[in-house]
Design a protein around this nucleic acid. Structure first.
Lengths: 328, 328
DNA sequence: CTGAAAGCGCTAACAG
DNA sequence: CTGTTAGCGCTTTCAG
C-alpha cells in the first residue's frame, strides 16, 4: 500500500541499505546516488515508517507527559514549556490528562511505556506509584513535577515552594492588619493543597481556626455556601487566602463584590485588571516545565546521580486585593 | 533487556502465540493456561512493545493534532475535547504546537505521519498543504479545524461562523449608537482574522474607515500606539471590536480605563468580573474540538462521503462593555 | 485449545 | 562507496 524503502530502492536502482543511508543522512553515499534516491523518494511520496525504525533501534525519541488537565492554564503553560524543550532535543512529546484520577494516570503512563517513551514527566494524581517499578528497572527515567511520588519511591522531583508561598501570603495579610484569614482550597489529599494548608497554618500560629478552613471541590455553589457560613460567624474572616487559581476565580465570583482582602495562590491573566487588582503568590508553570524537562534530558544523557529535589521559589505580587485593610 | 513475549512464553511454559492470545484477550485459551501466563507477565513485569505490534498490524490507534499553541486557552480547550473523544475511541493523541509557523506545522504533520497516525486534525498555520498529498493518497483522513486548508485541496473542515459573528458584534455596537468602530486584529494572512475583518467591513458598509483598522501582532506597545493614533483623529472611534481573545485582553490593558465601548471575539475567563463586564462573541473551542474529532472517527469508520464543511454558530454575550453609549 | 513459521519495515553488523 | 544478511518483537496464517 504505502511505499517502503524496498520500493524506493528498486525505483532508484540501488540497495535498500543505500536508501536507509540517505534517509538517515549517513555519510558515505555518492552525491549522484543520493540525488537519485531522493528523487525516487519524492516521486513515490515515501515516508519512513517510524515504528519499524523504533523497533530496530530501541530508542523512540519520545517523551511522555502526564498532567491533570491541558485545559487548565497552569498545566497548559507547563505543557508548552515541556514541548519546547522536547523539540529542542529532536524528540516528540506524548501527553495526556489524568483528570485527577489515579487510574487514568496509570493508564496513561502504561500506554506511554508500551510505546516505549525514552522518559516520563508525571504530575501524579495518585498516591501509589509502585506500578512504575518495571519501567524504572528497565532504565526509563521519570521526573515528577508539581507533586512528589507516593511513598516508597524516590525520584527526581520539581516542586514549587508551596509551604513558603502560603506563609508569605498569610504574613502579608497579617501585615495589613488581618487576623481572621480564611483558607479555601482543594482536598488535602492533593499534595499542593495540603502543603499550602500547612503553610497557612504555620504562619497563623495561634490564630488558626478550623472553622475558617474549607477544602472541597471548587464549585461555585459549594464555595458560596462555605463563605456564607464563615461570614455568619461572630468572628467572621476579614481576609481570604485561596489555594489555587481555580479557587481564586471561584471565590471572586462567590464574593460578588463583597469587600474582603484576598491573596490567591497562582497568578492568572487579568488579575491586574480587576478592581481591586488581585494580589497573588505567583508560580511559573513554564519554568517548572522547563526545569523538569531539562532534568529529564540530563538523565537521558546518562547523569546517574542520586534523585534531585528541586524547589522553585514563588513570589508575591501585590495588586490591591491583598492590601485592603480589615473593616473598621 | 526488557522481557519480551518470548521470555513470558518460556517462563510460563507455553508457546509465544499463547502469550499473544492472552495479552490481546483473544478467545480460545484454557483459563488455567491463561492464568499461568498472566502470572508470568506479572512476575517479569512484561509490557507489550507497541512499536512491534503496530509494525505488524498496520494500525497505530493514534491520532495527530496540530494546533497553534497549547498555552492559548482557545487551543487548550480544543485539545482537551479532542483528547477526550480520542480516548473514548481507545486511541492515543499526539499533539504539537506550530507556533503559527508553516514550517513547524509541516514538520509536525510529517512526524505524526511517520509515526503512522490513523488520522489527523490540523489547525493550519500555512497556506500550502500540497505536502499532505501522499498521506491522503495513503488513505489517512485529515480534518481541518478553525481554519480551512490552502488552495487546491478539498477536505473536511470545521469552522466557526467568523463572518456572522463579526457582523453581530458590529450591529450590536451600531444598535447602541456607535458609528465610529475600530477593529483590532491579527494579520489578515490568518484566515479567522481576515473573515472577521470581512464581517466587520460588511456590517459597517459605508461607515467603514481604513484608518480605524489595525492588524498586527498583539504586543501591548503596538496596540497602544495604534489606539493612540486612532484616538488622535478628528473623528475618533467611540467603540472597539477586537479580533480575538488575545487582542481583547491587550486592548483592555492598552485602554487603561479609558471609557470606550468594546466587543471582543472569543469569550474568556473573568470577562464577567471586569468593570464593566466585557461583551463578547463567544465561540466554543471544546465543541469545535469534539465535532472535528467525531468527524475524523466517522471517516476512520469508513464514511467516504464528500468533504464536509461544518460551520459552528457563535453567540453574542452582552456584559456591559458593548452596551456603553458613545460619549456626548 | 495450542503451536510453528513467516514476515511487517527498518537498522546494525559486516562484507565487498 | 555500496550491498547482503540477520533480526528487533510482535501478529497473521496455517497446522495440528
Amino acid at each position: 500500500m504505502r511505499p517502503t524503502m524496498k520500493d524506493v530502492a528498486s525505483a532508484a536502482g540501488v540497495a535498500l541499505k543505500t536508501v536507509s543511508r540517505v534517509v538517515n543522512g549517513e555519510p558515505g553515499v555518492h552525491p549522484a546516488t543520493a540525488e537519485r534516491v531522493r528523487a525516487a523518494i519524492e516521486r513515490l511520496g515515501y515516508s519512513r515508517n517510524e515504528s519499524a525504525a523504533v523497533l530496530r533501534r530501541g530508542r523512540t525519541a519520545t517523551v511522555g507527559l502526564v498532567i491533570e488537565d491541558v485545559a487548565d492554564p497552569f498545566y497548559s503553560g507547563l505543557s508548552r514549556a515541556v514541548e519546547d524543550v522536547v523539540i529542542e532535543h529532536g524528540c516528540l512529546l506524548l501527553s495526556g490528562s489524568s483528570s485527577e484520577e489515579p487510574l487514568r494516570e496509570r493508564e496513561l503512563v502504561e500506554t506511554f511505556c508500551a510505546r516505549r517513551v525514552d522518559g516520563l514527566i508525571v504530575v501524579p494524581a495518585g498516591e501509589d506509584h509502585s506500578y512504575l517499578r518495571p519501567e524504572l528497572e528497565a532504565g526509563t527515567p521519570v521526573v515528577f513535577a508539581d507533586r512528589p511520588p507516593g511513598a516508597g519511591i524516590e525520584l527526581d522531583t520539581v516542586l514549587a515552594d508551596n509551604l513558603g508561598g502560603a506563609g508569605q501570603a498569610i504574613r502579608h495579610l497579617m501585615g495589613h492588619g488581618h487576623s481572621r484569614i480564611a483558607f479555601l482550597g482543594d482536598d488535602p489529599g492533593i499534595f499542593t493543597a495540603a502543603e499550602r494548608l500547612n503553610g497557612y497554618r504555620q504562619a497563623l500560629g495561634g490564630l488558626f481556626d478550623q472553622r475558617l478552613v474549607s477544602m472541597r471541590t471548587p464549585s461555585l455553589e459549594g464555595v458560596r455556601a462555605d463563605l456564607a457560613r464563615m461570614f455568619a460567624l461572630d468572628d467572621p474572616p476579614s481576609a481570604l487566602f485561596t489555594g489555587n487559581g481555580r479557587y481564586t476565580v471561584t471565590a471572586l465570583r462567590a464574593l460578588a463584590g463583597r469587600r474582603v482582602a484576598l491573596v490567591g495562590f497562582d497568578d492568572f491573566e487579568l488579575a491586574d485588571l480587576l478592581t481591586p487588582g488581585v494580589s497573588v503568590v505567583a508560580q511559573d508553570p513554564a519554568w517548572m516545565g522547563r526545569v523538569a524537562a531539562e532534568l529529564l534530558f540530563r538523565r537521558l544523557r546518562g547523569d546517574a546521580g542520586p534523585p534531585e529535589h528541586i524547589e522553585l521559589p514563588v513570589r508575591l505580587i501585590a495588586r490591591g486585593s491583598g492590601e485592603l485593610p480589615p473593616p473598621g
